[in-house]
């Protein structure tokens, strides 16, 4: 078959996928862009063109700036912790000990647990009056009295981050473990003979093999964390005093609770742009690390 007809056939085979994606994602995205320049309401009026009003109001509003900071905190801390814990767990699982296979098998459990179930479970654990965390900490003497974990701005976000980490670090661990197992045994042995210490060995022998896969995990997790909605919706709904309100929750509130579809759309697009910039920066980084490996 000639090159052109191969290409034509390829496009034909791609067509169903592309058609669905354009219909269900491309078109709504364009429509969101259109909406973002109007004062449309969710129910009733179609809305008038208002130029960049929505964007100006959104970016200058204190709600947006505060929420952006909250979201960034959530994303950076939780992803960083997941990476560190994940790599540590992977290094551990790469050692030989009894029960290793079983422990590896367990790692899949938090990942498989639906996000909403995870959030519900942790909300019960954090319950200020009857929660397991308060009970456990007071019974072993670490805490004098029960306290409110999700009700204090100081601990609410941290509590959410812990719940999110618990579910996601095992995924990072599994990815890192697979990469570790690709490190050839003889290189490790050689570095041992050379007298490299454990940290030098990790830095110069192991890490290069981990960098690529970890980078991908990092990108995926950061994007996810920036879009976070489910876990916060179930656990705090943005409280106390809006200290855990993230961008997605803010968009929901604007577009659906207050029914201001227009300004909700502008907010959503700003979020999209932020995520895109992040992803692009990461992509550049991935290319760089991939380049330095080969």
């Amino acid at each position: 078959m000639s090159g052109t007809s191969m290409t034509t056939r390829a496009w034909l085979l791609m067509l169903p996928l592309l058609a669905v994606m354009i219909a269900v994602i491309g078109w709504p995205l364009i429509d969101t862009i259109h909406l973002s320049f109007t004062d449309a309401k969710l129910v009733g009026t179609a809305g008038n063109f208002v130029g960049i009003d929505n964007y100006v109001k959104t970016i200058t509003g204190s709600n947006f700036q505060r929420t952006l900071v909250t979201t960034a905190k959530f994303a950076i801390i939780s992803v960083f912790a997941e990476m560190v814990l994940g790599v540590l767990a992977a290094l551990l699982l790469n050692q030989e000990f009894r029960g290793r296979t079983m422990l590896r098998g367990l790692m899949i459990l938090p990942w498989a647990l639906p996000t909403v179930v995870n959030a519900t479970l942790w909300r019960l654990i954090y319950n200020p009056e009857y929660g397991a965390l308060n009970a456990a900490l007071t019974q072993i003497g670490l805490l004098d009295a029960y306290r409110s974990w999700l009700g204090e701005p100081g601990t609410a976000l941290a509590s959410l981050i812990i719940a999110d980490c618990w579910k996601n670090f095992p995924l990072v661990a599994l990815i890192a473990l697979a990469a570790l197992q690709a490190v050839p045994r003889d290189i490790q042995a050689a570095s041992l003979v050379d007298g490299a210490g454990p940290f030098a060995r990790f830095r110069f022998v192991t890490l290069p093999y981990l960098a690529g896969p970890l980078m991908v995990a990092l990108v995926l997790r950061t994007i996810e964390a920036f879009k976070v909605f489910d876990i916060i919706w179930v656990m705090t709904r943005g409280g106390p005093a809006n200290s855990t309100r993230t961008l997605s929750i803010l968009v929901y509130q604007e577009a659906f609770s207050f029914q201001r579809a227009g300004s909700g759309a502008s907010l959503a697009l700003i979020v999209t742009l932020l995520v895109a910039v992040l992803a692009a920066a990461y992509a550049a980084l991935v290319r760089k690390t991939a380049g330095s490996n080969t």
């Binding site: 994606m21 269900v24 994602i25 078109w27 709504p28 995205l29 429509d31 969101t32 909406l35 969710l42 994007i223 920036f226 879009k227 909605f229 961008l247 997605s248 968009v251 929901y252 577009a255 659906f256 579809a261 909700g264 759309a265 959503a268 697009l269 979020v271 999209t272 995520v275 895109a276 992803a279």
Partner: peptide, 14 residues
Amino acid sequence: ATYMLPPVALAVPL
């Protein structure tokens, strides 16, 4: 790349 899009950006038109 559409994976980057937050669902909230599509929700209203959808």
